[in-house]
Amino acid sequence: MNRHLLSASDLDRDDALLVLDTAAELAALTDRAVKKLPTLRGRTVVNLFYEDSTRTRISFEAAAKRLSADVINFSAKGSSVSKGESLKDTALTLEAMGADAVVIRHPASGAPDRLAHSGWIGGSVVNAGDGTHEHPTQALLDAFTMRQHLAGGKGDLAGRKVTIVGDVLHSRVARSNVLLLSTLGAHVTLVAPPTLLPVGIETWPCEFSFDLDSHLSSTDAVMMLRVQRERMNAAFFPSAREYSRRYGLDVRRMNALPEHAIVMHPGPMNRGMEIAADVADSDRSVIVEQVTNGVNVRMAVLYLLLAGAQLGESEGSDRTAEVVAP
């Protein structure tokens, strides 16, 4: 694996499977009463969050702590950043404090790339969501969840049909999912009004469509993206109600899905907008499970980036032993 995880495209099929397999092993271990592993004892992970994201920050924090890493949470609000400190100076500060990994969430697309490649810091950089670019660990937890339900928890997602619905234009989740899922062999279809699909969508490794209903019966997993109501004011669609009618997942549409299909959402949800409450709370929904899997996947990523050398060289069941004994 690369030293950094900036984009889902950093992962080839073997890397992606290694993360998912490692996450599965870690999940088995952390099912125990004592959830903590000593693997990253003495290592420092910084959560550098320039955007409010309680869910992702807590997930990374839990992941690092379960691996016994020291965790420093740095949020832009109420910090030196709110006094005008630049990303560069913040990075130099973190480097001086000896950060082994920096998990960064930033509103500017490409900020993690800058952090990783400008020579400001020496540690690993994990992209926890940058602007409208990517969110690779979200894609990993989504793939993990799909694999549990659709592929017996093993191997890749070859031939599985995934439909991702909503504001693709502004969605880092969609970008990372398209890249990772296609790497894993799944067939992805993006569904959105034409205004919410980016220019050049025809060059992406997926299909796209403007019509949700025609895809439901052949879908194994449907992922609903959050649609911000403000988009309506920028003329991306006429009204929340019209959006919901054409692209929302209601009970009628859920019933058109095959029996085995799962319903996903990266959160936070707009109930009644892109997803009906009855759907979100139905037994098709794996939304809460996604959150649980997020911790395990992030543990795997931190583990592989910070202690990965030993693991990458080992095979099969030996891995588990090495995870336990650092």
Binding site: P198, V199, W204
Partner: peptide, 18 residues
């Protein structure tokens, strides 16, 4: 707008400049 609007701006997640 941040860069030329193109397939690349879509990939990079940067607001396009058509």
């Amino acid at each position: 707008a941040q860069m030329n609007e193109s397939a690349l701006s879509g990939i990079l997640g940067l607001r396009g400049w058509p």
